[in-house]
């Protein structure tokens, strides 16, 4: 490998790195959604993340965030669906796993209570 090739290769990788960083800057909808959620505006957050899912249906982050928002609003079925999608897309993600674990803990409690009601 001569010096020219190596310099060119380095430049190419640097360019890729730069592109990668720009590409991974938080997308507007995702960022907006998170800001809204942090201010307690969960309906706005849902609107943003639904759009983010439409734009990129394979984004585990968008599905996860949407699931959290649905859970917050008490739409447990929708939340479970979104959590499952997020986990299918990114099964190793620790944050999604943690969210889903806590969600299931809540849900199991609710389901147990519902079963009790039915028995009554």
């Amino acid at each position: 490998m001569n010096t020219k090739t190596i310099v060119l290769l380095s430049l190419l990788i640097l360019l890729l790195l730069l592109a990668c960083c720009v590409m991974y800057l938080p997308q507007d909808e995702m960022k907006f959604g998170i800001e809204a959620a942090q201010k307690g505006l969960w309906d706005e957050a849902i609107f943003r993340w639904e759009r983010a899912v439409q734009q990129d249906p394979k984004s585990p982050a968008a599905h996860n965030n949407l699931a959290v928002a649905y859970e917050k609003k008490g739409a447990f079925e929708k939340a479970e669906k979104e959590y499952k999608t997020a986990l299918e897309l990114s099964p190793e993600n620790e944050q999604i796993q943690s969210n889903y674990k806590h969600f299931k803990e809540n849900l199991n409690k609710i389901e147990k209570d519902e079963n009790k009601d039915e028995k009554r």
């Binding site: 997308q27 999604i96 969210n99």
Partner: peptide, 9 residues
């Protein structure tokens, strides 16, 4: 109150 993670990307 419960903790949840919101993911940016």
């Amino acid at each position: 109150p419960q903790q949840r993670y919101l993911i940016l990307k």
